[in-house]
Nucleic acid binder design. Sequence first.
DNA 1: GCGTGATACATCGTATCACGAGGCATTAAA
DNA 2: TTTAATGCCTCGTGATACGATGTATCACGC
Lengths: 106, 106
Amino acid sequence: MDIQLKRGLLDACVLAAIKDEDSYGYKIIKDMKPYLDMSESTLYTILKRLEAAKMLTVRTAEHEGRLRKYYHIEEPGLKRIEEFKEDWKEIMAVYRFITKEDDPNE
Amino acid sequence: MDIQLKRGLLDACVLAAIKDEDSYGYKIIKDMKPYLDMSESTLYTILKRLEAAKMLTVRTAEHEGRLRKYYHIEEPGLKRIEEFKEDWKEIMAVYRFITKEDDPNE
DNA sequence: GCGTGATACATCGTATCACGAGGCATTAAA
DNA sequence: TTTAATGCCTCGTGATACGATGTATCACGC
């Protein structure tokens, strides 16, 4: 799959993965795997970025002797997902331009 | 609009713009404008890249005293558009993961 | 004749960012 | 005791979109 095509989905995808329930890095990757293959280094980079942007908060917890960092989505993160949905309308318009397919709804 | 989201569309979009008829830089930008705002520097970078990848060929012509470089799509370019369409199926699966929308077809 | 905007091309430097390669530690299975 | 799974992290590199900037022609208004 074209890397460039994935780029725009990554942030929103990570946020979606923790939207309904707090999760941690290792699990997020496994949950996304069927849809999107993301390397660990990429995920942790993104998690740092989203934290810096206040879109999520982190809580460290011990689980069976191993460290886990649980990520919790915050208001700006939810807003980010909504913005993604808005942007998607424009993306679909571009998609139609590329594929020359007509949209009966517009 | 999120820049990252646009990235994967750029190459395919430029190829689509010259698919039916040879075109030149300035016109390509104007044609895409309603769908996608691309800066000139970005376009010329992309055209160079696509040329290097043999996806298109260039022909220089003079038009009313001004230079014009017409771009013509080649077989690999057409193939690239088809690959884009294939990739899009995966992209839509990711989109559904993000928006939690169910697809009745799968 | 002179400025301005449209037409048309190009280059360079910068910032962003995904990812591979590596590293560290624990637990369980082989 | 080696391997795989779990769980985290950093660093360097390459790709790349874009703003800034530059060059040149033509048409138009003043």
